[in-house]
Simulated scan of single mutants.
Amino acid sequence: MTPRADHLTVEVVDLIGTVVARYHEEYEHAASQHSLTGAQARVLGLLAAQPLPMRRIAQRLKCEPSNITGIVDRLESRGLVERRPDPADRRVKLAAPTDEGRRTAEALRGSLNFAREPLGRLTVAERTLLKELLQRMLGTAPE
């Protein structure tokens, strides 16, 4: 790698770090507005997309299943999540959002404002390119 390319890589990594830090700060603030921890909000957000077994939630969030059990217990006690049997395997329990949980997840997502304004300054083509580049970096680009 040339010195210029190496310097550019460092700059990009620093910018990504700044975006991630701002995202986490905004996410924690938005979660607290709904009396949730950041971890509870992330679990609720995942479940709003689809009910999941605890093990899958733990894999997606890169944490121990026992941590997820505690988080789901707290969300369940607030009426935001329920446990139900997996129709494909009755031995497995899925965590699923309640109607109130879905509303809370939607409100939480709607309150994450830090990127809306900066992304709004990009054209649709620029946002599409950014999305595709991020997907390539993560290895999730459609083939």
Rank of each mutant, 00 (worst) to 15 (best):
M1H: 12
M1G: 15
T2W: 05
P3E: 10
A5M: 13
A5P: 03
H7L: 15
L8F: 11
V10H: 15
E11L: 12
V12H: 11
V12Y: 10
V12S: 14
V13K: 08
V13P: 04
I16S: 05
I16H: 10
G17P: 01
T18I: 10
T18Q: 13
V19A: 09
A21V: 00
A21W: 05
Y23Q: 03
H24N: 12
E25T: 09
E26Q: 10
H29D: 14
A31D: 12
S32R: 15
S32E: 15
Q33E: 15
Q33W: 06
L36W: 02
L36V: 13
G38Q: 12
G38E: 09
A41L: 03
R42A: 15
G45D: 15
G45K: 05
L46A: 04
A48M: 01
Q50R: 11
Q50G: 10
P51I: 04
L52G: 00
L52Q: 09
P53T: 01
P53A: 04
R56H: 13
R56W: 01
R56K: 14
R56T: 15
I57E: 02
I57Y: 01
I57Q: 03
A58G: 06
Q59L: 10
Q59P: 01
R60W: 05
L61E: 04
C63E: 07
E64M: 10
P65D: 05
S66E: 14
T69R: 14
T69E: 12
T69G: 12
T69S: 14
I71N: 03
V72E: 06
D73F: 10
S77T: 12
S77C: 02
R78V: 07
L80P: 02
L80C: 06
L80H: 08
V81M: 06
V81K: 01
R83N: 13
P85K: 13
P85W: 10
D86R: 07
A88V: 10
A88P: 07
A88L: 13
D89R: 13
R90D: 15
R90M: 08
R91A: 14
R91D: 13
K93F: 08
L94D: 01
L94P: 02
A95K: 00
A96W: 00
P97I: 00
G101V: 00
G101D: 00
R103V: 03
R103A: 07
R103C: 07
A105D: 01
A107L: 08
L108C: 05
L108T: 02
S111R: 09
L112A: 07
A115Q: 08
E117S: 14
E117N: 10
L119E: 05
L119D: 08
L122I: 06
T123D: 11
A125N: 10
E126S: 09
R127Y: 12
T128K: 06
L130Y: 04
K131E: 12
E132A: 15
L133E: 09
L133T: 02
L134K: 03
L134R: 04
M137N: 06
L138H: 01
G139T: 00
G139N: 04
T140V: 15
A141T: 08
P142L: 11
P142D: 12
E143K: 11
